[in-house]
Write a protein that binds this DNA or RNA. Sequence first.
DNA 1: TATTGTTATACTCTATAACTATA
DNA 2: TATAGTTATAGAGTATAACAATA
Lengths: 182, 182
Amino acid sequence: MSDVADRTRSIAAPDGEPPLQDRAVEAPGLGPLADSLGFHLRLAQEASFAAFAGRVAASDPDAAGLRPGRYAVLALIDRNPGLTQTALGQASGRDKSTLTPVLNDLALRGLVRRDRTAGDKRSYALTLTEAGQSALRRLSACAGEHERELDRLVGPEARPVLMAALRRIAAHLGEQNGSEDR
Amino acid sequence: MSDVADRTRSIAAPDGEPPLQDRAVEAPGLGPLADSLGFHLRLAQEASFAAFAGRVAASDPDAAGLRPGRYAVLALIDRNPGLTQTALGQASGRDKSTLTPVLNDLALRGLVRRDRTAGDKRSYALTLTEAGQSALRRLSACAGEHERELDRLVGPEARPVLMAALRRIAAHLGEQNGSEDR
DNA sequence: TATTGTTATACTCTATAACTATA
DNA sequence: TATAGTTATAGAGTATAACAATA
């Protein structure tokens, strides 16, 4: 425990990794993370997120700032015109307070309209403006390319397996956590 | 386009979703997101993250605040004792400046030691303290349970397919984005 | 009383740029 | 000049709690 450099040289490589010397200096090993689904889920999600954002920014300078989260909001409103912010929050798994600044931003960009509903004067009916629909079309094109790239990487046989696994993880773990009332 | 409530009632359901009426009111449809790998990657990752954090908090009140990111840092240091902060950043895909507060926190908790190296006086050699090793053991137990739960959800045949797919996504999309110099 | 959306506030995670001390 | 780590700062994303308007 006294000689750090020495310990660095004498790391064992128990499971699944090539036993290298000086690995800490050259290329750190992942240890137990190397075979962790949770860890790789995070890496893949981050990479996917960044790739989508990069694709959007590259294809349309105006759409800068329309990250995946905004795309999801626009797509959900487009698909469910007239829905309320609370419903949108439930659909996207966010608190209603989280959506206020998001919708402010989207309304300020002229992409989303908030109309008071006739029935319940507390809530807003959310719809896309013309500009919002056109922005969504452009984002959808990027999303389509992105999805095709993911499909290409994953491969046609693995895709349904991957989707089913992701759905099961989200559904079953999501029940336990975070779904309290939101 | 004038009657929002009417539009809400007349949504078509092109691909893969049950054609429901009043869906915006009852249960918003996901539209193109329903079959999106990227979207489900995000949902699954968030659920996994929350489940891990919840498990840690439940099993050990002292470990509150040791989220998955901290676990990864501890595991990487344990596996690569003596590595520098820059190397740790590269291994975990974060900028070095991101790690400064993280390591401050872990050092303050008495879990990580930063020793000046003999060779290069600019860098620190990172190691776990006794407390750090014991904290990592407890976290690893939670991580193990978490991984087993993921395995159970995914199923034994799908697991290697899922891992391979996640690796490919992270590796191939990660190359294009975000890997500039970090 | 309960619910919709807003506000105030705070916390986490992340990054860039400028700085220091070394190299 | 270049690198290791820190600091200052900023921004995105998230949440909780309290509030006003409405139900």
